[in-house]
Amino acid sequence: MSKRIDVENLNVYYGDFLAVEDVNMAIEPRSVTAFIGPSGCGKSTFLRTLNRMHEVISGARVEGKVLLDGDDLYGKGVDPVVVRSQIGMVFQRPNPFPTMSIRENVLAGVKLNNRKISKTDADELVENSLRGANLWNEVKGRLDKPGSGLSGGQQQRLCIARSIAVKPDVILMDEPCSALDPISTLAVEDLINELKEEYTVVIVTHNMQQAARVSDKTAFFNIAGTGKPGKLIEYAPTQEIFNNPSEKSTEDYVSGRFG
């Protein structure tokens, strides 16, 4: 399953502070979209509005529409929990549940919701999810060991396995490789390439080579200054953003002449 996301006139607020202003964007299914931009420009904030994780912070709110295959995430009566079960998220720092084993971590989305699942189905789900996250071969002998005993890169892939085990339509990744070494980063990037066969993937990254390597389309966000809202400057196919951007500030940023 894979769904498209259309963002219409989205304003994101923290209390009275306008953090991201007037974003319009169409994210295609079965594609990888990268968000790049300087720190504090609102790309992570914007990403978190795509599965209603933004409102977990008190005082945070949103104006505008985010359509998932035409259904507004912020429509009346929409349960954010349902939204989040369809749009998964992987965070900057690997965060496996420390009280759970590797197997329990993968099954967390099922077990924490108290859904009943037979042992064989569970085994199958664990194996498929871990295979999907390229982790199966490394951990198949120690599924009952704690997830926090894995290396950072393995933990991050475990978190990805945990996300895909709930069978979402979209996977959001917030700088998934910023805490990882180059080899683990490569493993996660390979994984992203495989994930786009089945999922819509949106990734925030500070690493422009990474954006160039993994994404089909790239969105460049920028901020005019401290206290000003972040804005979507340019959204185009990745090749175009890096080789032939239409905005001067995009070119400055991707060529390292920023600021």
Binding site: N51, M53, V56, V81, V82, R84, S85, Q86, G88, M89, F91, R93, N95, P96, F97, P98, T99, A108, G109, K111, L112, N113, N114, C159, R162, S163, V166
Partner: peptide, 26 residues
């Protein structure tokens, strides 16, 4: 850590279940 709560929310787990099954056991 707040990250554990967010990880749980991002899996589509309700707040009270997050508290009883993730926060308190930790």
């Amino acid at each position: 850590p707040n990250e554990l709560r967010e990880a749980s929310y991002a899996l589509g787990v309700r707040k009270w279940r997050t508290i009883t099954k993730v926060v308190i056991p930790t």
